[in-house]
């Protein structure tokens, strides 16, 4: 279809009637005297942009569904973990917010440079966007690693999270402690002399013996199991208070005893679902930017940059809501 597709529908439909007040002749003589039928898209924007906006409106609903169910699940739960219970670092989240905001600015500047036909400048801004987006994903990966290392996974086989310090938790700790691999390591630990160990490991060995005694105690009380859970992985009372509270799982990384985070399982499901889908969107955006970098970014490609930018701003927008909801609520 031709560029002239942007003529308004109604105007063309009764074009004869409008002839009188149109200053059609100021443009010289192209198409003079020919009545040429034209395609009418109906909206004053390019098809690419229209489709991008339609796609974004479905994305609004997609993320609204995710965010909405998160909010409803979170506020409907009897118990929801505090951000520091699940090892979320607010400064890291804030840093990632800043990175995404910067990348939104760079993509806008790339578009402006491309429109002004400054192709190399546009390419630099585009490259900066790509780097910032990758930085975001890198930080996200680091954060995921911190969750995994504390046994927080969205699914059970890998995840170590128990909802409360009860009999089921105690029996899971017993089961782990009688695992052949762990038994071997425990025997090695017991055989070590205190001079070869750090003070932390010496204290850890003592508390591990206490944990073993408590989980096997026939007179075990509810409070004893809470003591076990606290020794394995304490819940920091306030952020910053315990200074990254250390438990047995941190002292001995092979131990991987089950941990208690009240409300932790639902939290993990929503956290990984929300940030995972967001990270996938960031990844797709990076792919688009990488492809765009192979083009000459001048006025001819400005439309493509604009559409990619619209998508990227939307991804930024989602994070603007995700950050406070996940890290600060």
């Amino acid at each position: 279809m031709s560029t002239s597709a942007f003529a308004a529908g109604s105007d063309f439909a009764d074009g004869g009637h409008h002839d009188t007040h149109h200053h059609g002749d100021d443009h010289g003589g192209d198409h003079h005297g020919h009545l040429k039928l034209q395609y009418q898209p109906g909206l004053p924007l390019s098809r690419g942009k229209l489709i991008m906006w339609l796609f974004l409106s479905t994305e609004i609903m997609f993320f609204a569904a995710l965010l909405g169910s998160y909010v409803v699940l979170r506020f409907g739960a009897l118990q929801w973990p505090k951000p520091h219970h699940v090892h979320l670092s607010e400064p890291i989240g804030a840093f990632n917010t800043f990175v995404l905001i910067c990348s939104s600015v760079t993509v806008v500047l790339a578009l402006e440079a491309a429109k002004a036909n400054k192709t190399s400048l546009a390419k630099s801004w585009m490259l900066a966007t790509l780097v910032l987006g990758s930085l975001f994903l890198g930080v996200k990966g680091y954060e995921y690693q911190a969750k995994f290392s504390h046994g927080i996974y969205p699914v059970k086989p890998m995840g170590l999270v128990y909802e409360k310090p009860d009999l089921y938790y105690a029996s899971a700790v017993r089961a782990r402690l009688s695992d052949p691999v762990v038994l071997e390591k425990l025997a090695e630990l017991d055989a070590m002399s205190e001079t070869d160990m750090s003070s932390e490991e010496v204290a850890g060995r003592k508390s591990l013996a206490e944990v073993k005694r408590l989980v096997n105690d026939p007179d075990q009380q509810a409070f004893d199991i809470a003591v076990v859970a606290d020794q394995v992985m304490p819940l920091p009372a306030e952020h910053g208070a315990h200074g990254g509270a250390h438990g047995l799982n941190d002292t001995f990384d092979w131990l991987r005893l089950p941990v208690v985070i009240p409300g932790g399982n639902m939290w993990a499901s929503t956290y990984f679902l929300l940030t995972g889908f967001h990270a996938v969107h960031v990844g797709v955006g990076l792919l688009v930017f990488a492809i765009l970098l192979t083009y000459t970014l001048g006025p001819a490609t400005a439309g493509m940059i604009e559409n990619a930018g619209l998508y990227w701003h939307f991804v930024d927008l989602v994070w603007i809501f995700l950050f406070p909801l996940l890290y600060l609520f």
Binding site: L78, K164, V227, A229, D230, P262, G264
Partner: peptide, 30 residues
């Protein structure tokens, strides 16, 4: 359905659900 789910929860489910008392117990232990 979801937001008010804990208002009509059965006694049996309550046994297995995390409650604020569990967090309090953990802090007592600490």
């Amino acid at each position: 359905d979801i937001g008010f789910r804990s208002r009509m929860v059965s006694q049996e489910r309550l046994l297995y659900m995390a409650r604020p008392s569990d967090e309090a117990l953990m802090h007592q232990a600490a």
